[in-house]
Design a protein around this nucleic acid. Sequence first.
DNA 1: CCTGCGGATGTAATCCTTTACATCACCCCT
DNA 2: AGGGGTGATGTAAAGGATTACATCCGCAGG
Lengths: 335, 335
Amino acid sequence: MATIIEVAAAAGVSTATVSRVLSQPGRVAEATRAKVMEVVAALDYRPNVAARTLRTLRAAKILLTVPDISNPFFASVIRGAEEAARDAGYAMVLGDTRHDPEVEDQYAEMLSRREVDGLVFLGHRLPASLEALVARQGASAPIVNGCEYSPEIGVPSVHIDNAAGSADAIEHLVQLGHRDIGVITGPPISPISRDRLTGALRAAERHGLKDRLCLREGDYGADSAHRAARELLAEGVTALFCFSDEMALGAISAVGAAGLSCPRDVSVIGFDDLPLARFFHPALTTIAQPKGMIGRRAVELLVGILRGIEPVERQLTLAHELIRRTSTGPAPNTR
Amino acid sequence: MATIIEVAAAAGVSTATVSRVLSQPGRVAEATRAKVMEVVAALDYRPNVAARTLRTLRAAKILLTVPDISNPFFASVIRGAEEAARDAGYAMVLGDTRHDPEVEDQYAEMLSRREVDGLVFLGHRLPASLEALVARQGASAPIVNGCEYSPEIGVPSVHIDNAAGSADAIEHLVQLGHRDIGVITGPPISPISRDRLTGALRAAERHGLKDRLCLREGDYGADSAHRAARELLAEGVTALFCFSDEMALGAISAVGAAGLSCPRDVSVIGFDDLPLARFFHPALTTIAQPKGMIGRRAVELLVGILRGIEPVERQLTLAHELIRRTSTGPAPNTR
DNA sequence: CCTGCGGATGTAATCCTTTACATCACCCCT
DNA sequence: AGGGGTGATGTAAAGGATTACATCCGCAGG
């Protein structure tokens, strides 16, 4: 691999000139520029990134960690984030933490070691090794949280109003005449789960149904929801609100396995609006999150911090939307 | 951020000793080691990766590019690959190319610039900028192809026997009495699609059904399959073989939309065995790929090349498996 | 004709780590 | 006691790019 020294020699100029041709072409005479570019092409020269990073202390990279790459929800967020990063001149490095704090820490090390300039993390845990960084740098720490939101970690974040979205789901079911509603939640350790639960309870309370809500804890995976739904169906619920579309799929599967029909006997509503949700059978009613926009805004926030711009809003709440499809219908007793 | 020089000064040793403590602790006296480690902890020192990479010409990173991060199929492959990379002491950088040759090239640049030591790509296209590299380095080029396989690109690869898997699917349907079988393929540009088509045709031929197969081209997404299935159902097929589980979901959705029932009126069989496939309604019969193992073996192959070991087998064919669930059943006319 | 200025280019320090080689102290053996 | 070996540590040279500062040249203005 050719180095800048060889290029300089071949073009009969100094390395400084070659460097300038590549990074600030305007500051070089046209003839020189052309000559250098010719040699660059001939030698197939590519600047060594390690050397550049070492010198400039800037990696031009952003790290995005997701807790579970197999969750299609994150795919759309990733897309949005990557586009925004590209727009801002950053490359995006993607890490799958598998909900494992140890792996999260390993990725966080990339920031400590300056392998990347900033971090967008989509989980709910700020890696331990970065707490000191946040404490030290405060608002200028190049870290942004996406999807989730924990005020106590002191990091800017982008998310929807999960409590409100959850309330909308309950409201929708109540409107359809459902009174016996099962809720399959997420692990309470995640603020998202807690917010959604709060919202669901609040909405139920408005209709005097708070104590009638049947709660079961899921883990956002179809499997856990399948089991939880089986139990809830045995208790006679006519509607199931799942904290994720994937869990809703598991719930629908349980409805069928119980010899019941969705939505005739049991309505199911999800959360996220996965691209596949409209192909579920029946097509899934769900609360849509602006997934791409969450990713995009999170990166934009981060880039702002990297450029030294204190964000006006450190908490960005984007709009959600109830998508009505065919997995929800009138409660059986109301027909 | 502390540097090795500050650590050396604080510990009263030379930078060489600090470096040795960190990378080859055995070659340093115990007392010195302890002292240095103490200072390292006190100063929260982390080696600068750029400097290390520059000096060693080794990034300790592997790049994995996937054509579509939103396809859950790849999630399992990624997991396997990451585990193998970790085992071998490499970090994994993940790139989503969105089937875009331009983006593929951008990621390939990371290899040219030595930002990463090697590349595992899961698409079917070798980025143009790497063709020269392969031509020059031949078998020692640190590039491995996963899932797909194109002999002409001259790169080692890990995959299943797609033709055989496809044949198994057709065989399964024929065994159930189906004669009018619709096949929703993938874009013929992908070798995978071509192999699967070949296999399907060969199996059909064995039963004298070759000309009776109804073919429609899909793009591996649910949407395209939904449309294709609608057309095929109008032609009266009793079974649909889809080249991906995602397409199978779209097909099942079309079966329902046509007022038919799966599997009573129409059987559907997919390909891949996504984690969610067993929660489809009905649960999907499909050809399972050893996804995690594909990722793992691909990385192991790459690591072998990076260590200078010429692989014995440059093409690794792993075993697939027919998973019988409830989306396939006897042909209606045979009951 | 001299001065000064601006544009183009070169010189060389710097970023931080690794490692080949040099050095040094100490011990064992003859 | 001297020579040779061994183990621990230091010295200093890369590794490749960027950039502050220096230099040089030509030209315009006085």
